[in-house]
Amino acid sequence: MEIISPEGLRIDGRRPEEIRRFNCRLGVLSRADGSAYLEQGNTKALASINGPHQAGDKAKIKHDRVHINFQYSMATFSTNERRNRPKGDKRSIDISQLMREIFQSAILTDLYPKSQIDIHVQILQADGGNYSACINAATLALMDAGVPMKDFICSCTASLVDSKTIIDVNNSEELHFSNPLLTLAILPTSEEIILCQMKSRLHADHLEDILKAGIKGCKDIYEIMHREVLNHVREAAAVMNAT
């Protein structure tokens, strides 16, 4: 099965440099300090934030910065084949650790010494780009919770097929193991790369192309996220000014 047809379209009808339909919403849970839901194509993620609050465990209290707890879990019905464990398996723990480090560098942690922020992201439907959706959802939820950050963290995947780069890879495209898969996360304003993870082999000559494509994908996503956050603030302002 070809990933890119002779007419230049992918299996779901997108062009190689097109991201999937992106929809997001802030403040979906009523009692969380911050929450966000987003859909990247058929991948659906829900993030919730609790904090910053007093660090519970004395061992976790850091006198100069906030402690970040991250939990990544995939609902058992999120994948085509049912998963047995939503979290606690090695992969989830590895991802949670990775996410914790990413957000540690973007959140202004020295503003909240001795506190703790709990971030929980649940993948409700997995159709490729799960880690990207996780990062994007967590960013939006942190914005909703009013946690100060240096910038948004926008994430996107990219791959190389027959020397052509494609971005925002979905599940069926990901399953082609021979193609490299790059997961990238950047701080959009400065274009600084905060996560760069590559699977499979890639010739060094193509690295620049695939990175550029990934950065462009992240920036496209940033535009949509930024717009949604602005709308959210405007709506809140409108209500507050009316009362």
Binding site: L108, M143, G146, V147, P148, M149, K150, V229, L230, H232, V233, A237
Partner: peptide
Amino acid sequence: TYLQDNKLKASVAGF
């Protein structure tokens, strides 16, 4: 807000 490269930037989304 926070300072970066002598520029004042917002660190939260708000008013």
